[in-house]
């Protein structure tokens, strides 16, 4: 009998393991002695064989004990702390709710926010459509409409589908929140993803709009970058001849990529923009851009604008195409008459 009592008490204790230690000890301290008393009484009455038969299973006994504490789900310490924190936040929000509501003519702010709910459903549908389009596409920028395979019509259809779906979901979850906790958590996580994506989209769009506005409206941007309109570079030797396959480097030895063709060449180079492409940029870089018609090119060794030609350098009939004429590190020598910034 004593073994049975100890077992029964231990099982009751295990079922109450979530209680705060103090309350649990108060309850369990005397339990074996009490059970022994009960067992003796039962025996004296000529009753049932086991404690479980007379008192019910230990879990039921534990549940009944718990009920006498005055609260059913005895919260553990962290849970109690979290509960208090939540109720503090709730109380603060409640005060804010009542204080801010009258400012915009409502009794409570939450009342107004509840009215905005359908607007959020529409925005949510749009954001999800944008997110799907973003995951779908490869390359190309980001507009304000979802596009699939570059098709705006298809994008619009998808947009409408997602907005309608979002509204349907919104109405459903408002009428009856999902009963399963897992579903609610999943919905919340998905909402968080959509909100973060929306913020990112907003920042990107804002950035881009600001950028183009700034460029178009301030002429200084054109002034500050004198290379804006450079399409290609022609490197001339001291003899006035165009050097084919010339390379430009800056003071660090990094290639200077100037002009539309060079940059495009760089991006489309093998290795997809890795290190490999850098030294493939040679000037002139546009294959079909004809050389500028300058009065002093290849006609006669006219004095170059920035220096008096050395008399020792005779006009060579065929200038060496590449290696010997690495331009000097000074950028002014490489780009012709360098405008001063």
């Amino acid at each position: 009998m004593n073994v049975e009592i100890a077992q029964y008490a231990a099982q009751v204790g295990a079922a109450l393991s979530d209680l705060p230690e103090q309350a649990r000890n108060d309850l369990l301290e005397d339990l074996p002695a009490h059970l022994a008393e009960v067992a003796a009484e039962i025996e004296a009455e000529g009753g049932g064989a086991t404690l479980t038969e007379r008192l019910g299973p230990p879990s039921a006994y534990a549940a009944e004990l718990r009920a006498t504490l005055g609260h059913t789900g005895g919260p553990s310490r962290p849970a109690a702390w979290a509960g208090r924190a939540v109720s503090r936040v709730r109380a603060r929000w409640g005060r804010l709710d009542r204080r801010l509501g009258p400012v915009i003519g409502y009794e409570r702010l939450g009342e107004f926010l509840a009215l905005l709910r359908p607007a959020w459903w529409v925005v949510r549908g749009w954001l999800v459509a944008m997110l799907v389009a973003q995951l779908w596409r490869d390359g190309d920028g980001l507009g304000l409409l979802p596009r699939f395979e570059g098709s705006t019509v298809l994008g619009l259809l998808v947009l409408i589908a997602f907005v309608v779906g979002s509204i349907w979901l919104g109405r459903r979850t408002t009428a009856a929140p999902p009963a399963r906790r897992r579903t609610r958590v999943a919905l919340g996580a998905a909402t968080a993803v959509v909100v973060v994506f929306g913020l990112g989209l907003w920042v990107a769009a804002d950035d881009r709009l600001m950028g183009s506005f700034w460029q178009e409206s301030t002429p200084t941007s054109w002034v500050s970058d004198p290379y804006n309109q450079v399409n290609d570079i022609f490197v001339l030797g001291p003899d006035g001849q165009i050097i084919q396959g010339a390379r430009l480097v800056d003071q660090d030895g990094s290639p200077v990529v100037l002009g539309y063709c060079a940059q495009r060449f760089g991006w489309e180079g093998p290795g997809g923009g890795g290190r490999g492409w850098e030294w493939r940029v040679v000037y002139p870089s546009c294959p079909d851009l004809s050389a500028p018609q300058l009065p002093w090119v290849a006609v006669s060794p006219a004095p170059l604008p920035w220096e008096t030609p050395s008399p020792s350098v005779a006009p060579a009939p065929s200038p060496s195409p590449s290696g010997a004429v690495l331009p000097s590190p000074s950028p002014s020598a490489s780009a012709g008459p360098a405008p001063t910034r």
Partner: peptide, 15 residues
């Protein structure tokens, strides 16, 4: 009334 209810109540009143 169950035994656990009485036992729990006694412990609590005692405490």
């Amino acid at each position: 009334i169950g035994d656990a209810s009485v036992y729990g109540t006694l412990r609590r009143l005692f405490a």
